[in-house]
C-alpha cells in the first residue's frame, strides 16, 4: 500500500541545506500498521511529511496504492489516498469553525454530495454524538478533538492514514480510547496506517512492524513479536527500550 524506496528529505536552501532523511526504504502492506520510532530530530516526522505531500523537497520513490507520486505536484487522486491525523488536538482544528464545519470541509472541497448525512455518519464512526457538530473546539475536550481530527481524515475515504504522534498530547485513559478507536477503524474499513511516535509502549501495542530511526536513517526493522521479546540487534533500540520500559 505504501512503498518508499531510497527516500532523501532535505530542508533549507544553499549552504543551510540540511539532509534530514537518508536512504530510507520500507513497505507497508494493505491493512498493516507500520511504526516509525525515534527521538526528536531523528527524521521520522520528515518521512511522514514527505509522504503526505506537506513537504516537497525530497528525492526517491514513494508509491501510494501502487501509483508513484511526484514530490512537486500532487493530483487530486493522490490527495484522496492519504490523510494525516495530527499530534496536537488544539492546533489541528480551526478554532473558529464548528465541529460539523471542520468535518464537512474536505467534503466541500471535493464537492461531495449529502454532506450533512456524511458528517453524521462520520461522527458516529468516531464515537461522538451527532449534536456535537454544532459545538466549537473550545467546548470539547482534547480526546474529543482528536476524534474530530480522525473523522475529518476519514471523510474522503482515504485508504491510508498517517498518524503523527496521535496520542502523545492526551491523558493515558483517553489515549487508550483513541488507540482502540483507531484499531477498530482499521479492522472495519481495511485501512493502512503509518504511525510516527516516540512511545515504545504505543508502538508495541499498535504496530505490526517497526522501523527504528536515528539520525535520518532506519537503523533497525523489527516485528511486533521481536519487539515484545526484546530481540533487538542495534544498541540504540536497546537503549530506547530500557529507557521506556518499567524500571
Amino acid at each position: 500500500m505504501i512503498e518508499v524506496e531510497d527516500l532523501q528529505v532535505f530542508y533549507g536552501e544553499g549552504r543551510d541545506r540540511f539532509h534530514a532523511v537518508r536512504d530510507v526504504s520500507f513497505r507497508v502492506e494493505k491493512g498493516e500498521t507500520y511504526g516509525l520510532v525515534g527521538e526528536s530530530g531523528s527524521g521520522k516526522s520528515s518521512v511522514l511529511n514527505a509522504i503526505a505531500g506537506r513537504h516537497s523537497d525530497w528525492t526517491g520513490t514513494v508509491r501510494l496504492a501502487g501509483a508513484e507520486v511526484d514530490p512537486r505536484r500532487r493530483n487530486p487522486a493522490d490527495r484522496q489516498k492519504v490523510q494525516i491525523v495530527f499530534q496536537d488536538p488544539f492546533g489541528a482544528i480551526h478554532p473558529k469553525h464548528t465541529i460539523g464545519g471542520t468535518i464537512a470541509e474536505p467534503l466541500a472541497i471535493n464537492r461531495r454530495q449529502n454532506r450533512g448525512e456524511t458528517v453524521d455518519a462520520l461522527l458516529r464512526q468516531v464515537g461522538l454524538p451527532g449534536r456535537f457538530r454544532y459545538r466549537y473546539p473550545h467546548q470539547i475536550s482534547g480526546g474529543q478533538r482528536q476524534r474530530v481530527s480522525i473523522a475529518r481524515a476519514l471523510a474522503l475515504q482515504s485508504p491510508i492514514l498517517l498518524l503523527d504522534e496521535p496520542t502523545s498530547a492526551l491523558d493515558v485513559s483517553v489515549q487508550a480510547e483513541i488507540l482502540n478507536l483507531l484499531q477498530d477503524l482499521r479492522r472495519d474499513q481495511g485501512l493502512t496506517y503509518l504511525m510516527v511516535t516516540h512511545d515504545i509502549g504505543v508502538v508495541g501495542h499498535m504496530c505490526d512492524r517497526i522501523g527504528v530511526m536515528k539520525d535520518g536513517r532506519i537503523v533497525e526493522e523489527l516485528t511486533k513479536a521481536q519487539l515484545v521479546r526484546g530481540e533487538t540487534a542495534h544498541p540504540f533500540t536497546r537503549e530506547l527500550l530500557s529507557e521506556s520500559l518499567l524500571g
Binding site: 506537506r54 490527495r79 490523510q83 494525516i84 492546533g91 474536505p106 472541497i109 471535493n110
Partner: peptide, 12 residues
C-alpha cells in the same frame, strides 16, 4: 498550523 496543512492536503 496543522489545520491549514490539513486543508491543503485535502485540496483547498
Amino acid at each position: 498550523s496543522d489545520y491549514l496543512a490539513s486543508a491543503r492536503l485535502q485540496g483547498a
